[in-house]
Write a protein that binds this DNA or RNA. Structure first.
Lengths: 221, 221
DNA sequence: TTCGTCATGTAATGGGTTACATGATTAC
DNA sequence: GTAATCATGTAACCCATTACATGACGAA
């Protein structure tokens, strides 16, 4: 069961667009690189992969193609299944990337949308960031109103919880402001850019500090 | 369908402990007073109420008991159903309040646990806060490790997302530190307090600024 | 009289998890 | 040779949502 996944489907297509992978690896990337937000389990991933194959957006390939000696291709030997995005899949993912419906900035979707901003056009990026911001501002307004009405009825802990919640939202708004400003600055530097400029266009943040050597050990679930 | 709700069940019992209410009102309080976290719908609330009645933790009472003139108690007139906590329900809720399993500090549960800290013993409060803190610190460690390993493979947006995520978690840790300190200070001020001191014991935060007059208008869904 | 909001519910569905079952490969 | 981890899956369940159906009550 479980057709029409939405967020998981989106993430899978997005990761596979970067490079083909098998399910196990996909899940790890889902929970680390893109992680923090959600942790998907095999029980949702594999069925999702199956339906994506049925849609024609992925194809399954055997992990060890012909370069395997002692070929015993039939019988035994469970091969890794590597999933690769088809042309249709790529096209479909690009449609999804271009969408700016209200879904795009709800809590569950926003994070994953942001994670693929590297593949998203600046127009869409800005719209999603602004949508998110006004969503949060609505929320703030409601919280403030509710707080004003009920303040004296609430105990200190409930109050503290709401205060902390509001501060968190305010903080995200400030973050969005910076990002939006940064995107706009990027646009202004390149006036009337003729829409096409596929890679190397990521507008914003020049982070990257050095330190901390690579270390092994991984994975929870 | 839908037995064993967990978080919804907990919240309902907790709100009804403060005063009896009918379903509609209960849902509003769920989404404002305790809100921010989740928004429950009638489709989950009413079935939940029903099972709680079956357990014997709630009883249903008619909303307009005898003080209604022109009594037409049977036929027509859909009465409000007011739910009241039974003695068993109260006892059960207190057991739930006392629990400090790892569940208590997971994302989904922590907020609601905190919301009822006013009814929770200080011991339990501290344990839950500390549990939450160490949970977040684990998470931070994992994020840092993962970031160190994958930094150069990630684009600026993914990096920025992770950075913001980590800062959020760090911020919550600092918040928890303050709360824990505040709880400990409360205990030290009252050495060997003999365990009983029912109300007015809320340990921590003397917030409360004035301003903003009461205003009507409410509710989303 | 119609609209908004109060008020209670059910059926179908959704999107995911847990637990289970199975087996290959690698490191010690 | 055995434990850890890699790797793929299924079935049963969970907790909630959406959409729907129903109807009372107050105010414009």
């Amino acid at each position: 069961m479980s057709r029409r996944s939405g967020i998981l489907e989106f993430a899978v297509l997005g990761l596979l667009r970067e490079s083909p992978m098998h399910g196990y690896e996909l899940r790890k990337r889902l929970n680390t690189s893109l992680g923090v937000f959600r942790a998907f389990s095999y029980g949702s991933l594999y069925p999702c992969l199956k339906t994506l194959v049925q849609q024609g957006w992925l194809i399954e390939e055997s992990g060890n193609p012909p370069e395997d000696p002692l070929a015993a291709p039939l019988s035994g030997r469970r091969a890794k299944i590597v999933y690769r995005l088809t042309a249709e899949g790529k096209e479909h993912f690009e449609e999804l990337l271009a969408q700016t419906g209200p879904d795009a900035w709800e809590d569950e979707h926003f994070g994953i949308r942001f994670a693929f901003f590297g593949q998203t056009s600046r127009d869409v990026r800005v719209r999603v960031l602004e949508g998110r911001r006004s969503r949060l501002e609505e929320r703030l307004a409601k919280m403030r109103a509710s707080l004003a009405r009920t303040r004296e009825r609430l105990d200190d802990y409930t109050l503290e919880l709401q205060r902390h919640g509001m501060e968190s939202v305010e903080r995200e708004v400030r973050w969005l402001n910076e990002l939006i400003e940064s995107e706009r600055a990027g646009r202004d530097r390149r006036p009337e850019a003729p829409e096409e400029r596929r890679p190397e266009e990521t507008g914003g943040q020049p982070r990257h500090r050095e330190g901390t050597p690579p270390d092994p050990s991984d994975d929870t679930n």
